[in-house]
């Protein structure tokens, strides 16, 4: 069992391929630890209620809302934040298709799209719609985001990392 102390505990988190040692409280959310302990500010605080998806990250290639996940739950798993994607096809597709306006929700959308494409390299429209319903864009870039996804599916946008 982990250290039962309610005070800070030291854990190793595998983030973007690097092992990071961090002192956390057991009740710290993953979002809080990423932003306040590790200065990884790509995941954004939005609703903090699991509704908006701005804080989405990948854990073992599955997408999660990091505001409703404790950091301690991710010990032993591979966490990927938007900072861990470098020149990925979906990032390039977002730029090419102007799939953002203010950009606040963009990292969350990108992580959701990345996880979607890992699991479904050739998703149907219905699958894309279902996955995208997890994120909210107040600038309403949904059409452009769908276009960005399908441009990656159809191989119209490249990148150097998957």
């Amino acid at each position: 069992m982990p250290n039962p102390s309610a005070k800070k505990i030291s854990v190793s988190l595998n983030i973007n391929g690097e092992m990071r040692q961090v002192e956390i409280r057991p009740i710290d959310t993953l979002l809080y630890v990423l932003r306040h302990h590790l200065s990884l500010t790509g995941a954004k605080p939005g609703c903090l209620n699991g509704d908006c998806g701005a804080c989405s990250v990948m854990v073992n290639d599955n997408v999660y809302k990091s505001c409703i996940m404790l950091a301690i739950e991710s010990v032993g798993s591979a966490i990927t934040t938007v900072e861990g994607l470098k020149d990925s096809p979906i990032q390039n597709a977002f730029v090419k298709h102007f799939a953002f306006q203010c950009g606040y929700c963009t990292p969350g959308f990108i992580m959701n799209c990345q996880a979607l494409l890992l699991k479904h390299p050739h998703p149907t429209y219905e699958v894309v719609k279902e996955w995208l319903s997890s994120n909210i864009c107040r600038c309403t870039c949904y059409q452009e985001i769908e276009e960005a996804i399908f441009s990656v599916v159809e191989g119209r946008v490249g990148g150097t990392s998957e």
Binding site: M1, P2, P4, S5, A6, K7, R25, P26, I27, D28, T29, Y32, L48, L70, I72
Partner: peptide, 9 residues
Amino acid sequence: MLAGNIEYY
């Protein structure tokens, strides 16, 4: 985030 000193097992 939850407040207070909450233990995790």
